[in-house]
Design a protein around this nucleic acid. Structure first.
Length: 203
DNA sequence: CTACCGATGCGCT
DNA sequence: GCGCATCGGTAGC
């Protein structure tokens, strides 16, 4: 069985649900870059809705967050701290600002391709963190708005793997720091280390 | 392992 | 101008 043929490609119906539910279900799915035959098992996802003070959609639609407000299953890529890229998939219905941040994954195929873009000693450092994942997968700002449910470069696949998923507070956010909107594989070494924002109010 | 710090560009008030 | 949905290096335990 190859990753490219057997597993089902996730359709728009999968993403047209509430972000927290999509985030939970995305854990265990495969992120696939078709033009490079690069694949990874998603192990950590965070959900962001428009009523969430930590969300880029909180202040309403803007040029930057437009993909979050459009139809589900599109990429929202933003620049973080002036130097990194982070990758979301839009969820919910058209006109509602939602998305899921892909935070970490386990490399499955294309290790050499990823290492060419992100030279690290250990596999565990390739995709552990949202900006690291984008660097290794070659995800950049020009891909923001692209359709992830068509024949484009990026899409998601389901090969039936269903890990045990747990939820907890998100990493690095200053507002709504205790909302349980982070979904990940319990005990997995591929998950990024939890780090509360030093600017977040005490719990 | 945890804690801290600086880099760095821009979206938004 | 302010404030980051981060990361890599260094210091210390």
């Amino acid at each position: 069985m190859t990753i490219d043929t057997a597993p089902a490609v996730l359709t728009r119906v999968f993403f047209a649900r509430q972000a927290p539910q999509v985030a939970r279900d995305l854990v265990g799915m495969i992120l696939y870059r078709r033009d490079a035959d690069v694949a990874a098992r998603i192990v950590e996802v965070e959900a962001y809705t428009h009523d969430d003070p930590a969300s880029h959609a909180y202040a309403g639609p803007t040029a930057r967050n437009a993909p979050m407000w459009g139809p589900a299953g599109h990429a929202y890529v933003y620049r973080s701290y002036g130097m990194h890229w982070c990758f979301n998939v839009s969820t919910g219905t058209d006109g509602v600002g939602q998305g899921c941040l892909i935070r970490a994954a386990q490399p499955l195929r294309g290790h050499a391709w990823m290492r060419a873009r992100r030279p690290v000693e250990r596999d565990v450092d390739l995709l552990r963190g949202p900006a690291r994942l984008c660097q290794a997968f070659g995800i950049v700002g020009s891909m923001s708005g692209s359709d992830l449910c068509s024949d484009g470069v990026l899409h998601f696949r389901d090969d039936g793997v269903r890990p045990d998923v747990v939820e907890g507070p998100r990493v690095g956010v200053t507002r709504a720091a205790d909302w349980p909107r982070r979904y990940y594989v319990a005990g997995s070494r591929w998950v990024s280390p939890y780090r509360r924002s030093p600017r977040a109010p005490s719990p």
